[in-house]
Every structure is written in structure tokens, then in C-alpha cells.
């Protein structure tokens, strides 16, 4: 076991321990409170908030992945070619929209709560995945697709057996970016009354209780770093595998 892995497991264990029994860590945050303010967030269970936060991100990212990969496949097929230039610039323009703006503008249509957060996360999460899938599918070496064609593969077989597996690491990089952005946007989602970890930070800011702000920030930050790290590891493993696969094909 490498040192990196040990550190990661330790951090994860510490995070889980804190979420399950936050009171045992009260002494860490004690010095940050003034005037007998509560030390540990007391308007809901931290574990519930964390699970809810992760659930929202998971649903939004799963939906965004399905739709974005589907759309990217459509516009890279011959019959969708007319949509390719526009969809490429749309993905580019769309990412200049700040996530907060997307979130705030979803409220008039959907009211307060989890719904606008999910929609904002979904819409905003689409773009990096879509852009990366496009890059992955259009950037394949022509020799590989030619070879597949030469082997008599149909368009569908080429897509499923050659193009998608080779594009997978790039697509995964898009999913990783999208997940990290979603984790951050979900935190801001608590300003529109979604039950996420942002609640802890904002409650701390409103009552100027630095202990709350710090716990919320630490939980969200640690989650983001661990998830980012885990997805990067999967990506590296896949790149290694498809790299070998590509060599075998050539």
C-alpha cells in the first residue's frame, strides 16, 4: 500500500467518523465560537445533509452524463453533422454562464427547494461532459476508424466497440469536471432552500459562527477532493487499459 493511499484512507475515515459522531470533535471547533454559541451544527444531522448533497449531485451527474453523451453521439453521426458546429459553440458559450446565475434563474420556473438546484446542476453539468465527449469522438486517429471500417464493422459496431471505448478516458475527465462543479453548485443550492451542506456554511455566516463555517467548508472541501481524486484514479486506470488496447489494434 502506497503512502498516498494510506493518507486518502485516513482522510476518508476521519470524514466518516466526523459525520457519524460530530460531537466527539467538538473540542477542535470550541476555540472558534464566541458567547456560548453552539459548537456543532444543530439544525439538522450533518450526515443527512451530506448524503442528501451527494444524492443530488449523483442524480444530476447521472442524468447529465446520459443526455450529454447521447447528444454528442448524435451530432457526430452523419445525419447530425449539421448540428455539430452550433452545438460546439453552444457548449463553449454556455460555460461562460456562472453557475449561480443558472441556479438563481431556475427559481422563477421551479420555485424554491431541491428542484431548481437539480435542474441547474443538470444543465450546467451537461456542458463539460458534452464538450469532452465531442473531443473524444472527433479526435480519434483516422487510422483506427479506417481499420474498423476495413474489418467490415457497421457504424453501430464501430461506435460501441471502437469509438466509445477509446474516447472513454476523455469522457470520464468531463464527468469528473462536471461532478466537481456540481458539488460546488449544490453547496450554493442551499441559498434557494435545497438541503445541502451549504446550509451549514450559510448558517455560520448569518450568525457569525466561524465553527459552523469551518465544519461545512471542511466537509464539502474534503468530499470534493476525495471524489476528484477517486475519479482521476479510475481515469488513469482506463487510459492505461485503452492505451494497450490501441497498441494491440494498430
Amino acid at each position: 500500500m502506497s503512502i498516498g493511499l494510506v493518507i486518502r484512507l485516513l482522510v476518508l475515515a476521519l470524514l466518516v467518523a466526523f459525520l457519524v459522531s460530530p460531537e466527539s470533535f467538538a473540542f477542535v471547533f470550541e476555540p472558534l465560537t464566541k458567547n456560548n454559541q453552539p459548537v456543532i451544527y444543530n439544525q439538522g444531522s450533518l450526515l443527512d445533509l451530506t448524503l442528501n448533497h451527494l444524492l443530488i449531485v449523483a442524480i444530476a451527474t447521472a442524468l447529465a452524463t446520459t443526455v450529454a453523451v447521447g447528444l454528442a453521439i448524435l451530432v457526430t453521426r452523419p445525419f447530425g453533422a449539421e448540428f455539430l458546429p452550433l452545438s460546439r459553440s453552444l457548449a463553449n458559450v454556455g460555460q461562460t454562464f456562472p453557475p449561480v446565475a443558472v441556479l438563481a434563474l431556475a427559481v422563477p420556473m421551479l420555485g424554491f427547494g431541491t428542484a431548481p438546484t437539480l435542474v441547474a446542476l443538470f444543465l450546467y453539468g451537461l456542458l463539460p461532459i458534452f464538450e469532452n465527449t465531442l473531443t473524444g469522438l472527433t479526435g480519434l486517429p483516422p487510422t483506427v476508424t479506417e481499420a474498423a471500417r476495413g474489418m467490415g464493422m457497421t457504424g453501430r459496431q464501430r461506435l460501441v466497440r471502437v469509438e466509445l471505448p477509446l474516447a472513454l478516458p476523455v469522457i470520464l475527465a468531463g464527468i469528473r469536471l462536471s461532478t466537481v462543479i456540481s458539488l460546488a453548485t449544490a453547496t450554493i443550492g442551499s441559498t434557494v432552500a435545497a438541503r445541502t451542506l451549504g446550509e451549514v456554511i450559510i448558517a455560520g455566516l448569518l450568525s457569525s459562527n466561524t465553527a459552523f463555517v469551518l465544519q461545512g467548508g471542511l466537509i464539502v472541501g474534503t468530499l470534493a477532493v476525495l471524489i476528484y481524486d477517486g475519479l482521476s484514479a479510475i481515469e488513469r486506470a482506463l487510459t492505461r487499459r485503452t492505451g494497450q488496447g490501441a497498441r494491440a489494434n494498430a
Partner: peptide
């Protein structure tokens, strides 16, 4: 690290 967490 998400922005609001880093600010915090």
C-alpha cells in the same frame, strides 16, 4: 474545493 467552502 467548492468556492463557498474556500471563502468560508
Amino acid at each position: 474545493i467548492p468556492s463557498i467552502a474556500l471563502f468560508g
